[in-house]
Amino acid sequence: MLDFRLIGQYLPDFLSALWMTVQISLLSGIISLILGTVLGILSLLEYKVINVPIKLFNGFIRSSPLLVQLYLVHYGLPALGILLVAFQSAIIAFSLNTGSYISEIVRGGLNSIDKGQYEASKALGLSWNKTMLKVILPQVFKRILPPLISQFSYLIKDTSLAAVLAIPEITYMARSISSTTYKPIESYGVPMIMYFIIYIIFSVASKIILNAQKRTVKENSGNLMGKKRAV
């Protein structure tokens, strides 16, 4: 039978581990979104000096396991004189990895915008920065929201790899509790439930965002029909 006393005893440890997972996910999520957006925009500007390195970077990230990338950051960068604590290494590795995938999503989104949008902005005298900020990117993010959400849900699960750097997040905590208590079902069962809860919260939040978007579209077309009939 499940040992609920054990779960109760280790609950504070699990909760602090949960908080660590949330921190890593949030920080990496925000950084990767910024990185991916910048890379996505840069890769659209047709400069070879920029494009080739970005393509190489994306190629390496996509072809290699995240675990290897994590080791490379954590043990490779200090060899180059950049000293990192495990938490920083994890954030860097996850941000680079997810950022790379997001850059491709953003690039696809940018490609889907009609060139007339750029022309109208130019004709109105808007600067390139304002064009991006006020005209192009708002449309891009509206379109790429679903793939972005699924990318972030991968990120949350991937943070479990931080366990190999002894960062006390959910998976690491589970392993260490399991090895001291010899109760693997309780030790790994609680993390399963925690990941499940994170997943539920995240997917409900995503659905609310996506539905809010759909509703504005629906209301718009509803109005149109109403007004057409009135005419």
């Binding site: 007339g116 949008q117 109208a120 004709a123 109105l124 005298g125 005209v135 708002p138 449309q139 509206k142």
Partner: peptide, 17 residues
């Protein structure tokens, strides 16, 4: 020049968002 001249396109090019 662009700020002081108005341009109207065949396909309107309004900002849909």
């Amino acid at each position: 020049i662009r700020k002081n001249s108005g341009m109207v396109f065949q396909h309107f090019n309004l900002f849909p968002h």
